[in-house]
Amino acid sequence: MILETRGIGKTFGSVLALRDVSMGVTAGQVTCVLGDNGAGKSTLIKILSGVHRHDAGMLLVDGAEVGFASPREALDRGIATVYQDLAMIPLMSVWRNFFLGSEPRRGLAFDVAKARRVAREELRAMGIDIRDVDQPVGTLSGGERQSVAIARAVYFGARVLILDEPTSALGVKQAGVVLRYIARARDRGLGVVFITHNPHHAYPVGDRFLLLNRGTSLGEYAKGEITTQELTALMSGGAELEELAHELERE
């Protein structure tokens, strides 16, 4: 178990965002976190990635308790996160985004030539076909952007990759592309935390499923223990949720 929470909790003022949630992430496996809007998914992963500090329970990395003071500390422990809404900086080029915060140096300078070359090579290695790494990230499609973010995390030696609803804004085809990169990251030995409210996206790639509802855990299940139908039913109002998911997909 690379990353683990035990009975973790978080309140924002009077809002109880998360209560007594336990989960684990293993190398080469995908842990899916499922839940309706406002269930606390983003809050949970923000704790895992060092954005928020939990105020109950324990957070463990490699079995030892930790408290991250910043996302940088989490990154230094190999925990990389691709955020739901703020994955990249739209006006900056693909290669500048790719190396943002970890720019390769040559002397005092940012090794621009290396950054361009490596970004192109890494994207190609992940099977991402971007014709021009100089184009602003804002001109990429949503799926391409998520894929670039995943490739970046893999390149920088992430051991755990956390993805907050990478498929929620995407159509069926693009969601499929992103799911494929998730599988590829998993095959390269990363532990993946995949947040989604769509069981149909979670089930094909997931190994374990954590269900959240109004900030509490409905349990963590291995793939053999549960079917897509059961997953859907467990999340409050399965039919409603599917409707919601489709609604969101059209954004």
């Binding site: 996302p71 940088r72 996160t81 703020l86 990249m88 900086i89 943002l100 720019e103 300078a109």
Partner: peptide, 25 residues
């Protein structure tokens, strides 16, 4: 701006400060 790491950070904090901070800028 164009050839140093700080330059990359300047574009990033102006483009989206939260996103920049999240990747360690």
């Amino acid at each position: 701006l164009m050839r140093s790491r700080v330059g990359n950070w300047i574009f990033a904090v102006g483009g989206n400060e939260q996103a920049a901070r999240n990747v360690g800028v």
